[in-house]
């Protein structure tokens, strides 16, 4: 199965959902001749046309990662989502050291340089952004700081 076909089918379903959702948009008394629904319909129409073209005439497949590499990439995504959730409750430095270190390990699997780059980035970026550029970051967990 071509990746383009899967993507085309996916976008087709998404466009249908988009149209359904657009049909539910409320109009108020002060509307214009076009209203808030027509442009979304047009956009969804274009998506459906293109999806059809991708389903009928897909390009050759690229090399998609499998096995270990796929797991590695999925792990990186999980890592970044976790980082997004941690940065407020735990402060900047601790999550950055952990996540930057683990990311570094994904690119170059040597534990010591990875740990060092995590530490360096966590502290270095904090100094750069907080001290030099004056952005509003909390370095340590706000709960600890009272």
């Amino acid at each position: 199965m071509h990746a383009d076909r899967i993507f085309g089918l996916f976008m087709m379903v998404l466009a249908l959902g988009y149209i359904l959702s657009a049909m539910g948009i409320q109009t108020s008394f002060m509307s214009d001749p076009v209203g808030p629904r027509v442009f979304p319909y047009l956009v969804a129409g274009v998506v459906m046309l293109c999806s059809l073209s991708l389903i009928l005439r897909p390009d050759p497949n690229a090399d998609w990662p499998r096995g270990v590499m796929l797991a590695k990439m999925a792990f990186s995504v999980v890592l970044l989502v976790a980082y997004a959730l941690m940065i407020r409750p735990l402060g900047f430095i601790l999550p950055t050291v952990i996540v930057a270190g683990l990311l570094s390990y994904q690119i170059n699997p040597r534990p010591v340089p990875a740990a060092l780059s995590g530490l360096g980035l966590g502290i270095g970026l904090y100094v750069l952004f907080k001290v030099i550029l004056g952005l509003g970051l909390k370095g340590l967990p706000p709960a600890l700081m009272g």
């Binding site: 270190g101 170059n108 980035l121």
Partner: peptide
Amino acid sequence: SWILLPGVTM
């Protein structure tokens, strides 16, 4: 790149 890329992400 193992320093650069994590840095860019952060």
